[in-house]
């Protein structure tokens, strides 16, 4: 079943991506501000401007432009960035890993903290730590990630300057990365000074991204655990004399995990979307930071490429979540 399910889901992604491509392309040509107007030199004549428009293919009707772009896209060519003057695919591939590493670290942090808080709240249910956990979760959900980012810059970057607040790695370090996955590569090569620098630079943006998701995970897990703890099999475990901690971990947790994973997965897509602003605040060289520059400069090919990349990423994340759900839930797996 999972293979057929996977194929069906992948097939469904095609019309979704096509829809995104249309909206992405048309919207960018309808919104005010075009890249040619931004690069017109002072002495340019009308003929010069027309030449520039033709050079970038913007003199053609929108359907013709779209068809040409789509045709190139199907051949794996996302075009050439107007501002950066490099292939969009290469640019996206060089910056996406930084975003993925940051998002994954944030996710790991959020899951670890969320589980700890959710389980903690149930473990100390009815006591003051539960109120503390609820308070933390409420605060985490009430404050958006970019505000957490600014607070962290102020607290741990300025007032108590213990962590770097910009970039991905210490600029004074000599690096010879072969892949754009710096963290994974440094870990694989056992270069722990680089790992340390990378983690230090990712710490604050990752925490800023993780905090709202931590709160969501803690809340969902807590609710799921409350429900699980009221089931008959938990009563049976208690009758058997099992301790509260053991009951939570061995009996209730696994069942509470299914809704948590599903909802957390959905939240992960928001987390990836949140990297755009967070990368800006922390001058982190990921795809989001590049996207903002592209929008400011009306770099149409690059914006289109980034949007399509995010679309593919979101589809893949959702697919992954659904597959995990299938694997975790026996009723779905054997249904």
């Amino acid at each position: 079943m999972p293979l057929a399910y996977l194929v069906r889901r992948l097939a469904m992604a095609i019309p979704t991506l096509f829809g995104v491509a249309i909206v992405d392309f048309v919207l960018l040509r309808v919104v005010p501000g075009n890249p040619i107007a931004m690069m017109i030199p002072p002495g340019a004549s009308a003929a010069d401007i027309a030449r520039l428009r033709a050079f970038y293919g913007l003199d053609q009707p929108i359907p013709v432009q779209f068809w040409r772009w789509l045709e190139a896209l199907l051949h794996g060519n996302l075009g050439v960035s107007i501002d950066l003057r490099r292939g969009v695919l290469g640019l996206v591939m060089s910056r996406l890993p930084a975003t993925l590493e940051l998002a994954l670290l944030a996710m790991v942090l959020a899951v670890a903290l969320g589980i700890a808080l959710g389980v903690g709240a149930i473990y100390w249910q009815g006591r003051w730590p539960e109120a503390v956990v609820d308070g933390i979760a409420g605060l985490g959900m009430a404050i958006p990630d970019f505000l957490w980012g600014l607070l962290l810059v102020l607290l741990l970057g300025v007032l108590l300057p213990i962590l770097p607040i910009s970039g991905r790695i210490d600029p004074m370090l000599s690096t010879h990365f072969v892949t754009p996955f710096y963290l994974a590569e440094s870990l694989a090569r056992g270069e722990f000074s680089l790992v340390g620098s990378l983690l230090a630079h990712m710490a604050l943006p990752a925490v800023a991204l993780a905090l709202p998701l931590t709160a969501v995970i803690a809340r969902i897990l807590k609710s799921a655990l409350v429900e699980a703890m009221s089931q008959d099999y938990i009563l049976m475990a208690r009758v058997k004399g099992l301790g509260r901690a053991r009951i939570i971990w061995t009996e209730a947790f696994r069942n509470a995990l299914v809704p948590t994973v599903t909802l957390s997965g959905v939240q992960f897509t928001f987390l990836v979307g949140g990297t755009v602003l967070i990368e800006r605040i922390f001058s982190y060289p990921g795809i989001g930071n590049m996207a903002i520059d592209a929008v400011i400069g009306r770099d149409l090919p690059l914006i289109q490429g980034v949007v399509m990349t995010f679309a593919v990423l979101f589809i893949l994340i959702n697919l992954l979540i659904d597959m995990t759900y299938v694997l975790l839930n026996p009723r779905v797996r054997h249904g």
């Binding site: 810059v153 970057g157 300025v158 910009s166 004074m172 800006r280 605040i281 001058s283 520059d293």
Partner: peptide, 20 residues
């Protein structure tokens, strides 16, 4: 010389204030 690309003005202030 290192030119760090810090496009956000608030972050630039923090860069200098923190000693980074």
């Amino acid at each position: 010389v290192v030119f760090k690309f810090v496009t956000d003005p608030t972050s630039r202030v923090a860069e200098v204030e923190s000693g980074s």
